[in-house]
Amino acid sequence: MPAKSIGQEYMKGLWAENPVFRQLLGMCPTLAVTNAVINGIAMGLATSFVLILSSLVVASIKKLIPNQVRIASYIVIIATFVTIADRFMAAFFPPISKALGPYVPLIVVNCIILGRQEAFASKNSVGRSLVDAMGMSTGFILALLLLSSIRELLGAGTFLGYQVLGEWFKPWIIMILPAGAFITLGILLGLALFIEMKTQRGRA
């Protein structure tokens, strides 16, 4: 199988192997913090921070870690970066930290991160792992952005806190509630598969 170019390595995270829409990973935070765009972005950035740095570290020291203790080591490395991100946010962005609540520490069990270490960073060069992590991060942020935009717009008529839809629009409160999160993601997943199927048929 021909090795992917650096560009392809990055781009796959955005669509073909999008962590949320195609790999169905990292759903817990995707549903939980997308009630407002600012929360989605903050979570996306925090997760990217952890993913990129963890991938860098794991790829750098992969030869030193014996196979049997690799999962434990990855977990400690990931947990360290998560703690750093969590503390940093609590110290310098308290309102967002409060809004995201327990979901920042939960990044440590975000399957996307451990998944990438296991599937990629432990088997590829530092450079490629970095690009892979960046691609996955971008894909994740895009997914969060999409979901939170829909939810905030329809659920409150605002975007990033700014009133976008006028007085005439009666917000669909359900969008802000858990139910709205599930339903929206379900529909988006269906849409993603639909597009995928159409383009496959187009090529075949």
Binding site: L64, I65, P66, Q68, V69, S73, V76, I77
Partner: peptide, 11 residues
């Protein structure tokens, strides 16, 4: 030994 050393160092 290596397992223990690695885990300890990482920790």
């Amino acid at each position: 030994t290596r397992m223990i050393v690695v885990l300890t160092v990482v920790g």
